[in-house]
Amino acid sequence: MPYFARRTLTLLSSIVAIVTFNFLLFHIIPGDPIRLIARSQHLTADEIAKLHHEYGLDGSLFSQYLTYVKNLLHGDLGFSFTYQEPVIDIVKRTVGNTVLLLTTSTLIVVIAGILIGVFAGSRHGKRSDSSTVIAALVAWSLPTFWVGMLLVFTFGVWIGGLPISGITTPHAIYDNIFQKWQDIGMHLILPTLTLAIVDIAFFVIISRTSLIEVMSEDYMLTARGKGLTRRTIVWGHGFRNALLPVLTASVLYISALVGGAIQVEVVYSWPGMGLLTYNSVLSRDYPVLEACFLITAVAVLVANFATDLLYHKLDPRVGVQR
């Protein structure tokens, strides 16, 4: 089977698995899910029966599952009792903000991380290399939310100067769209910086190791023998070859990134899926929590899929049946 077809099949089966897993997880909630969903102990028997029917909870587990999948395919993610509106509408409002935050920080993290890592690796064994490694290990040991708290304190209370909450200034009136984007940009600085401080470390360590390994290859000796300068060797030959292993490792990073984003959104009240998850935990709004988890998981699976395809395109040896 060609690689693309095989990989698509894996993706689809993973999605089916996560949908099923999600269904089971939220249907084995201790106690009657309806009481939890409605968050009321004062329902009459009639109301409970009606809600059971509405949520497709009145049949066997399997028929409930079928209803669940059918609703999903129609874009029906349930109804939120805290927001009093369909979950899908809440998601539509928030998902874009998370995408904006993740795209900005991923770009910065990947580019800065790889550049620093390759630089450190090219100075392997020197002082600047070992101090970079130590800094990266310290950064990787930091809890993301705590870094956020420190930056909120520094730039919101102590020195001041940067917005520490939300995505725009409340009640702001903009003359033009440019001003609005400028405002959003200002609000993006600290959340992005928080994710960057912790996550850059990941790419520094991976790309450094990868470069050191590449530099010990035979063709590097050849390049040196040709009399090329060190700069050309590192950035012209080493850099490119070091990128492939970094791409493989970034699969693990995608999952960590999502975790970091939830924490950052909580600390900065960034109105995205992470803050939505947090609020739905606090209010025990299970339909929202369920949807948040499902969407996040499927997004991560799809991102992995895309990374694998890109990797395969860059290095066709990958994915050959072992």
Partner: peptide, 11 residues
Amino acid sequence: LVVPALPLMIA
């Protein structure tokens, strides 16, 4: 390995 761990732990 690929399912995001923190969201799952939270759920």
